[in-house]
């Protein structure tokens, strides 16, 4: 590492997530090959890299949707629990946003957002409804509260999904390619909501192919290739002066001109 490398701005903040040598296999295929990465409070960490390089799998390991085959993940200083009850308590403090939205189609927008507080936190329906209404307003969809997901555009659905995750008042938000299933014209509205969230100081781990977003919003970028992090650093380094040739190849394939 050279002396000119920009320092990590938030490195003094407490570590929210720490990945230590994470290994994950699907059958014979080793998807994660010893991933080590820190996420500090208030940081936006973007995971970039080619499809199938393990970014989404790491995110899914983070909240226990996938189990680890090796290494460890610490969340707020404690190892990820393995028991069902512990996992649930931990998931309640992590929000997750999926590529395919996964809104509950039998519930209206506001019911989707209120579902977590009601069912998991045991909040009274009226209180959960108030919280959900405020969050829908925050993502600019107050007027869609009574709409079912099928009646919403992709961008609107994903904003509701973000509100649904925020309703649990999580300590960290995990975004798994949140704009990959969207029409180009609605990508901006979702990225706008995410940028606003970052500006409020939310800790975010974002798997994305939106390089402009990563360049502008991320505090730290990790480049994945074949189950490894081949390079990590502040966005200025990754996008303007990548030290690893493979990073340059990947970025130039996406048409990134720096």
């Amino acid at each position: 590492m050279t002396g000119t490398m920009p320092p990590r701005a938030m490195s003094a903040a407490p570590t929210i997530l720490r990945y230590r040598g994470v290994i994950k296999r699907f059958g014979d295929l080793q998807v994660l090959n010893g991933i080590s990465l820190d996420v500090h409070a208030g940081e936006v960490v973007c995971l970039i890299g080619p499809s199938g390089s393990g970014k989404s799998t790491l995110l899914r390991c983070t909240n226990g949707l996938e189990t680890l085959d090796g290494g460890a993940i610490e969340f707020e200083g404690t190892l990820l629990p393995r028991d069902e009850r512990g996992l649930r308590a931990m998931r309640a403090r992590m929000g997750m946003v999926f590529q395919s939205f996964e809104l509950f189609p039998h519930l209206t927008a506001i019911e989707n957002v209120a579902e977590g507080p009601r069912t998991v936190l045991g909040m009274r329906p009226a209180d959960a409804g108030r919280r959900a209404g405020a969050l829908l307003a925050k993502v600019g969809l107050a007027d869609k509260a009574a709409s079912f997901p099928a009646a919403l555009s992709g961008g609107q659905q994903q904003r509701v999904a973000i509100a649904r995750a925020l309703a649990m008042e999580p300590d960290v938000m995990l975004f798994d390619e949140p704009t990959s299933a969207l029409d180009p014209e609605t990508i901006g509205e979702v990225l706008g909501v995410m940028k606003a969230l970052a500006d409020e100081g939310m800790t975010m781990v974002v798997v994305t192919h939106e390089m402009a977003f990563a360049r502008r919003v991320a505090d730290w970028v990790a480049v994945f290739d074949a189950g490894r992090i081949i390079e990590q650093g502040p966005p200025e380094q990754i996008f303007d002066a990548p030290t690893v040739p493979r990073t340059r190849d990947f970025l130039s394939h996406l048409g990134w001109e720096g």
């Binding site: 649930r88 997750m96 996964e102 509950f104 039998h106």
Partner: peptide, 28 residues
């Protein structure tokens, strides 16, 4: 499966996922 995963990610138990998310959709 994404529906169950979204519900699990909120912190629901398996039974809650079935009762609140999967069964109502399956029943329809």
């Amino acid at each position: 499966r994404g529906q169950s995963e979204a519900a699990l990610a909120l912190g629901m138990s398996r039974v809650q996922v079935l009762r609140r998310i999967v069964l109502p959709q399956a029943l329809r």
